[in-house]
Write a protein that binds this DNA or RNA. Structure first.
Lengths: 139, 139
DNA sequence: CTGAATCCAGTCGGATACTG
DNA sequence: CAGTATCCGACTGGATTCAG
């Protein structure tokens, strides 16, 4: 499953994470908690991925993601803008034109997201097998 | 902010992620979506981190995390067990003893979690500055 | 086109009490 | 000790309507 090198890296990661965990207040202002709150909602990751393709206008994003509602796109973009992950530029035209773009900070979030996406895709079969087993064991 | 090598890695990641995004149905059974749903809840990451220190009994975890309620620990552990990230072994004693332990799959999740935690900790100051600026700009 | 405002259903999670 | 069951408030997010 895991080769030796990966196992070592993993052990190291576990130690580091546990150390970080112990010393931080995970429930108040812990940055890890904050980040999870941000990317854990329904749309943030999708919007970040979408904007990774380049700057886009409001209606464009709406079309690209298709199923997101207008309200949630607005809310999500506001959150990303507030955290400095996205810039919002208004062009003075009629009708108005608004362009959204990832900041450097926003782009840097791609690395951990990539790591997570990799894990998710690589381990999907195993997770699904586990689920089926569990479900038929239960009922 | 980012050196050239990191920038390259980032661009590569963006391309890869966008490719993955395009070809997958993000709204049905997308593995990335599923993973986000799992780790995006309030307690999963905390429990995984806690169990990263080694196998522990129910009450032990409860004491370690302190603020989690009994109910939510049960629910969270069931979810992790269902996805094959945690094993649950019952020892036939009185009173009952139940031990929880990360599986290899569970341990492998540490790598992306680490990546995310790193990002969160490294960029916390920048995010906080952005938030303060945004908030005072708004009201 | 880009939103803000309102309403409302469904879900999440906390508190509490009870069981083997 | 290790749960299960119930109740319930709070929050999330969708649909719809209105506005600049």
């Amino acid at each position: 499953m895991l080769d030796e090198q990966e196992f070592e890296a993993q052990q190291e990661a576990i130690r580091a994470l546990n150390a970080a965990w112990k010393q931080t207040d995970y429930l108040g202002t812990c940055p890890v908690r904050q980040t999870l709150d941000r990317i854990g909602d329904k749309w943030t990751v999708l919007v970040v991925l979408c904007l990774g393709q380049g700057p886009q206008r409001f209606r464009e994003i709406l079309r690209n993601i298709e199923v997101i509602s207008q309200r949630m796109l607005t809310v999500t973009l506001r959150g990303l803008e507030r955290d400095g992950l996205v810039t919002r530029t208004v062009f003075d035209t009629r009708p108005p034109t608004v362009e959204y773009e990832l900041t450097d900070l926003g782009k840097s979030l791609f690395i951990p997201l990539m790591s997570l996406a990799d894990w998710a895709i690589a381990n999907e079969p195993e997770v699904n097998v586990a689920r089926r087993k569990y479900d038929e064991r239960e009922q």
